[in-house]
Amino acid sequence: MKVLFFARKVSESNYGPIGEIFAKFEKAGIEISLFEPLLNQLHGYVPLPNANILETYEPLAGNSFDYLVVLGGDGSILDATLLVKDSGIPILGINLGRLGFLASIEKSMVDEVIKAMLHGTMAFEERSMLSIRSNLPLFAEANFALNDFTILKRDTSSMINIHTFVNGDYLTTYWADGLILSTPTGSTAYSLSCGGPIMFPSSDSFVITPVAPHNLNVRPLIVPDTAVVSFQVEGRSDNFLCTMDTRLEMITSAHEIAIKKNDFSIRLARLTNSSFLRGLREKLAWGKDKRNF
């Protein structure tokens, strides 16, 4: 069993839990690899395991890791997709952040996870992603997103006009602060905070969610994930914000952007006794009323 650990910036409060996680994986006889930037962050603060070292953050195609173990929150998992790409290596998220929809494994569950990994009883989910095409260069090789694609106004600018088409057929022009095109995975993220629906991760759909639309009768719209959704933007500013998950670039009214389902998906690992519905109840506190306590 070979695992590779990944994390973004590690906070001091997580030094202890990370040290305990390393010790448990090493005690179980699992072969550990670390990225050198993570090793440098932890050196002198965390007892380090006997590990193989990868010098740089680079795609993992051709590597034979059984898991990429992400230490952090959902944002760390979004960054990890850039490493995994189409390698098929499953991502296992150990939540050291806050809510943790994607990083579903809590620190207290590590022993159970290690046992399931060694016995081959982990469950895996295929998560669809978005892919971007543009008449002008955008996002280079990082042109896919697990959560969402957004077009947003600049901080101090007026609302923008986003001309939107589905399979080349004109849908509408959104007068809004922005627009989100979300995967089912991303439906519990930014789109949810803007009034979008929650979708099961296995849904064959995307959702278009406006951000602070001027027309009150404009509502989120679910479209099949076989559709190509394209955009042109106008506004009083010369440029606008465009994001793919955690990555951001500037665009102008000269950009013509098309979003479709990505050619490959991402595999997320979870325990068999966890589920999407259980996650909703626990993370969103559904069914819990403090008046009952």
Rank of each mutant, 00 (worst) to 15 (best):
K2V: 00
F5Q: 00
A7V: 07
N14Q: 11
P17M: 05
G19M: 09
E20W: 00
I21W: 02
K27M: 07
A28G: 01
G29R: 08
F35P: 01
P37Q: 07
P37H: 07
L38V: 09
Q41K: 06
L42T: 06
H43V: 10
H43C: 02
L48H: 05
A51F: 07
N52G: 13
Y57K: 08
Y57A: 03
E58F: 04
P59W: 02
A61R: 12
G62V: 13
N63I: 01
N63H: 14
L68Q: 05
L68A: 05
L68S: 04
V69F: 04
L71A: 03
D74K: 03
T81E: 01
V84I: 10
K85H: 07
S87D: 02
P90R: 04
P90V: 07
I91V: 13
N95K: 06
N95H: 05
F101R: 03
A116L: 02
L118K: 14
G120F: 11
A123I: 09
M129P: 02
S131L: 08
S131E: 15
S131D: 04
N135T: 12
N135Y: 09
L136D: 00
L136I: 14
P137N: 01
F139C: 06
E141P: 06
A142H: 14
A145R: 09
D148M: 09
T150S: 13
I151S: 01
L152A: 12
M159S: 06
I162W: 05
V166Y: 00
N167E: 11
D169R: 15
L171A: 06
T173D: 01
Y174P: 07
D177W: 10
S182F: 07
P184M: 01
T185M: 04
S187R: 08
T188S: 08
A189K: 07
Y190M: 07
F200M: 12
P201N: 02
P201Q: 03
S203G: 04
V207T: 05
V207A: 04
P210S: 08
V211D: 00
P213C: 07
P213A: 06
H214I: 12
N215W: 07
V218S: 12
V218A: 13
L221F: 11
L221D: 01
V223Q: 05
V223C: 08
D225V: 06
D225R: 12
V229K: 05
S230P: 06
V233R: 04
V233I: 15
G235A: 10
D238F: 12
L241D: 05
T243Y: 11
L248A: 14
I259E: 01
K261R: 15
D263R: 15
L268H: 04
A269Y: 04
R270C: 10
R270L: 11
L271R: 14
L271D: 06
T272Q: 13
S275A: 10
L280G: 08
L280I: 15
R281Y: 12
K283L: 11
W286P: 03
G287T: 12
D289Y: 13
K290L: 15
R291S: 11
N292Q: 12
